[in-house]
Design a protein around this nucleic acid. Structure first.
Lengths: 151, 151
DNA sequence: GGAATGTAGTTGAATCTTGAACTGTTTTTC
DNA sequence: GAAAAACAGTTCAAGATTCAACTACATTCC
């Protein structure tokens, strides 16, 4: 009977914070995803991929790095890039100095689709997140997320 | 050319915070999910369902309320409950006073599985989240998530 | 009281995700 | 310099998710 509770539990307050976090997370993500999808036909992950590519040297990234950058499994990225390729937003280029590898390269259409999607998406992010917070809260949130994002 | 930028962009700082948030979110979720899966065979959503049920009057909830409580579509909940039913952790009971409805009821096995899973999971949450934050940060995080979780 | 509308939950089919196995290349090690 | 180990990326098949129908019951409104 005892011995079962050798685990340090969460305090009542922590528990409340944790649940708020889970709810906020899941609501924000699903709302933004739905809106983005509706407005531009992109999922959040696809949007993230296009953003990463657009900011990279030569608007291209190796699959492995891209997968890390958007925090997605290799396998999932393969499928995702295949779909983006079908949409005409990305193309694959074999990597000359490492013949195992490929570049995922942003196409002009991809860049345009991203620019298009970004307007509405950014507005939503502002409205859904930042408009609800004071500058101080944003500052602390930044510190907190900085601490939490490390692997 | 102008008119394109009528959208209020995010400030550099806000942008950084937003990206940290996305990364932290996705890392935390995938790590906890993986660990939970490994330790107990439950996904985070399944765990959430069991928690909700365990805290409800009579350890049972109507599908609709349960779906809202775990923030999942009706359809997804149907499938999920079907799987949990196959695992023996939940059972469906027809609702007598509203013949359209069903109760999802936590079984004894479900309660046991939850208790089992909770130990390790809570430890992970503590380790992955709360141990990284000061009490003040936790307090502000709670306020922030409180503001963000509202629909 | 009965047509219209709303709500609870499920179904089906297409799409997406997952994880392990696999191919082909590079790097290491001895 | 060859064998072993590591790495990049894809494939396959099983399982999960989505979204739009759909069934069946409840509620509303005249």
């Amino acid at each position: 009977m005892t011995g079962m509770d050798t685990v340090e539990w969460l305090s009542g307050h922590e528990q409340g914070v944790w649940r708020s976090l889970l709810r906020a997370q899941s609501r924000i993500e699903s709302e933004l995803d739905r809106d983005l999808q509706r407005a531009s036909g992109l999922s959040l992950v696809e949007y993230g991929i296009l953003v990463s590519l657009s900011e990279a040297e030569g608007e291209r990234m190796r699959m492995r790095n891209l997968a890390d950058s958007v925090i997605v499994s290799k396998s999932r990225l393969t499928h995702q890039i295949t779909r983006l390729e079908r949409m005409g937003y990305v193309r694959r280029e074999p990597c000359t100095d490492d013949r195992r590898g490929y570049w995922a390269v942003l196409t002009a259409e991809g860049g345009a689709a991203l620019a298009d999607a970004a307007r509405g998406h950014v507005a939503k992010v502002r409205e859904r997140v930042f408009d609800r917070l004071t500058p101080d809260q944003v500052k602390v949130l930044g510190e907190v997320m900085g601490a939490l994002e490390e692997p």
